[in-house]
Design a protein around this nucleic acid. Structure first.
Lengths: 118, 118
DNA sequence: CAGTATCCAAGTAGATACTG
DNA sequence: CAGTATCTACTTGGATACTG
C-alpha cells in the first residue's frame, strides 16, 4: 500500500490496489481459475464451466483480463467461429499467488471460532 | 476455487472466495495495512491515517475485520475513551500474502505494454 | 459460435448529523 | 474520543433480446 509524505495510507498508484483491481469484480477470478484447470478454453466452454455467468459478464470480463495482460485470446478464422483463451505467464503467476491465498483461507475456515465469518 | 461433480467452477464454499471476502470492500485492506505499519492504532489515528475514510466506513470495516478474526479491538475504560486496534496472527499472515501479491503487481505495472491497465 | 446492446435491480459507499 | 443513524448517490451485476 502506498503512503504519502506524512506516512498516510493512499489508494492511488499502489501496487496492491493494482493487483486487487486485476481480480476485482465477481467473475474474473473464476474465469482465470477455469482456464488454468484446462490450459485453454473456448468461449462456450467457459460459459458452461463458470456457473451462472451471463454472456454479458463473460465477454466483458474476458476483455478486461486480456487488456490487463493476464490472458490471451486466439481467434481462428474458421466457420463456425472458434476462439480460445489461455493464461499468459503473468496470469499463471497471479493464479499461483492466489493459490497461496486460498490455502490461507482454508486454514482460516478451519479456525472460525475467532468470531465467525460475516 | 471449488468445482462441482462435473468439474465446473463454483463460487460457494470456496477458500479463495472466502479469502477474497475477507479483503472485500474498499477500505479493509488500507486499514489492515495502516495497522500493520504501526503495530497498533487508535480509532482517530486510523481515521487520520487512512485517507478519505468516513466514520461510517471505518467503524463498519473495523467490526467486520474483528469478527473475521483479523484484528483485535482493545478497549481501555478510561476517560476520555481509548480503543486500540492491532492485527491478530492470522491478520499478519494475510498481510504477508498480500505483500507478495503487491510485489507481483509492481512488476506488472512495470511491464504494462501488454495492453495497459483498464 | 461468439459475442453486443439496452435497460433495470441490487449492493456499496458517501454526506451529514448526532451520541455515550 | 469513539463511535451510530439515516438518507442519498454511485457503481456493479443481472435479464433479456439481438447480431456478424
Amino acid at each position: 500500500m502506498d503512503r504519502d509524505i506524512k506516512g498516510n495510507t493512499r489508494l492511488e498508484n499502489c501496487p496492491l490496489t493494482y493487483s486487487r483491481n486485476m481480480i476485482g469484480g465477481k467473475w474474473r477470478l473464476p474465469i482465470l481459475w477455469a482456464i488454468r484447470q484446462n490450459e485453454t478454453l473456448r468461449y462456450n466452454e467457459l460459459k458452461r464451466t463458470v456457473e451462472g455467468i451471463t454472456n454479458m459478464m463473460l465477454s466483458q470480463s474476458l476483455k478486461e483480463l486480456e487488456s490487463n495482460g493476464l490472458i490471451v485470446r486466439k481467434q481462428y478464422l474458421e466457420m463456425p467461429p472458434r476462439v480460445e483463451y489461455s493464461l499468459t505467464v503473468e496470469g499463471e503467476e497471479l493464479v499461483d499467488h492466489l493459490r497461496a491465498l486460498a490455502r490461507w483461507g482454508k486454514r482460516m475456515q478451519g479456525l472460525q471460532g475467532h468470531g465467525g465469518v460475516e
